[in-house]
């Protein structure tokens, strides 16, 4: 029986244009769904665990973020930190349906019960 986070990860990963999705939970465990090829789970987890140093150049007081989106030519990386310290990474194809719904998926993640 999957929990709400696992169900949401499966549903989110099924969206057209989602290349990978991972969540670093408050207990330090990481859950990822990806195609396993170009975006393997271990790389997603590694990125999630390097979230803070990745954004260390930004003054945290001035840029207390709702999210960050790193946009590359072939992939967009959205990091979404929650107030409970859970962290989401979504990787989507630019100009895809998933790219247009990044805000939507972000809102879903922020609203997701994580226990």
């Amino acid at each position: 029986m999957k929990n709400s986070l696992e169900n949401w990860l499966d549903q989110t990963a099924a969206n057209d244009g989602v290349l990978a999705v991972g969540v670093l939970r408050t207990n330090g465990k990481c859950l990822c769904v990806s195609d396993g090829g170009k975006y393997p789970a271990e790389k997603i987890e590694n990125l999630l665990r390097h979230y803070l140093p990745l954004h260390a150049a930004l003054p945290s007081v001035e840029f207390l973020p709702r999210w960050f989106t790193w946009q590359f030519e072939h992939g967009w990386f959205r990091f979404v930190p929650r107030s409970d310290t859970a962290l989401l990474l979504l990787i989507v194809t630019p100009e895809s349906a998933a790219a247009a719904e990044l805000d939507q998926m972000t809102a879903e993640f922020l609203d997701l019960p994580l226990k």
């Binding site: 170009k38 990745l54 960050f68």
Partner: peptide, 22 residues
């Protein structure tokens, strides 16, 4: 940082970083 974020992922050039704040 962008150049180092995913060095072997063949993501093409870095275009932008968008940050949403309150």
């Amino acid at each position: 940082q962008a150049a180092q974020i995913v060095p072997d992922w063949q993501l093409g050039h870095f275009d932008r970083l968008e940050i949403a704040v309150p």
